[in-house]
Amino acid sequence: MNRPAISVDGLTRRFGRFVAVDGVSFEVSKGEIFGYLGANGAGKSTTIRMLCGLLRPSAGRAVVNGHDVVKHTWEVKRSIGYMSQKFSLYLDLTVQENLQFFAGAYGLRGQLLSQRLEHALELALLTDRRNVLTGALPGGIRQRLALASALLHQPPIVFLDEPTAGVSPDARRAFWRTIRQLAHEGTTLFVTTHTLDEAEHCHRVGLMAEGRLVALDTPAELKRRHVPGALFTLHPAGGRSKELLAKLRQLEGVLEAQPFGHRLHLRIAAERDEAWLASLLEQVGFGEVGFDRTEPTLEDVFLQVAKEGAAATEGR
């Protein structure tokens, strides 16, 4: 069982002249949390819809759980769970009624149905609220219920399209803990998101921009590769940050300088260190400014990748 859970090769989808997904290739292994990251309209949802057999690819091939998404759409649909961006639950039904409905739609009956139903209620932490109307639940809990209902038939692969949009930070954390637990139990999770801090939870992250997969790796490796150099936060005294920013941007060895509230974010070449920065500040008359080292975020990665992409386009 070493075949990948999802295998995509040159997947392309055109809408008229618009290319929504452009020659995307990747593999997702079993039990992996695969993050699919990109702005709205970058092609995330289109990819998911092709992988779920909801949309025919214009070109390329996608194999999900060993089944070709075009030739064996039925087998694909049976082996996946799909939780869409929009709510798929009926708000005027109770928690249990919703689960019963979806279980019925998946063809579960009798003993198995009640067993899976209880399991889903536990997963959503709603065992004691099964008779509550779904519409009365807060967004975060509804999201968990939607996930539980997508898992009723115990699919080996689950697609989550922007699962935490509009959910509060603590509910989001709880949600991600469930997701990691599922992955640990062997479920493969394909998650799209446009929030970068959320992508940190994923084992591997694919970056989409204008329909193309522009980067793919673990978050740590992405940062190491795409955000070279050292990052610092500077704390200039009130009112002088603009002046300092202007000076820093002209100096050699400074790769990037950005305002950040009253502070500044600075990235310098990898071979430079704290001592070099201290002397540099001294040199431009800002010796009193304190600084600490910071870690790059996936946002930094994204910005760099986008910049590289733009440079590559211009170079062509």
């Binding site: 702005a39 709205n40 446009h194 946002e299 910005l303 986008a306």
Partner: peptide, 9 residues
Amino acid sequence: NGVDPVSRR
């Protein structure tokens, strides 16, 4: 909300 990181920056 719903803006890519580059536009956000």
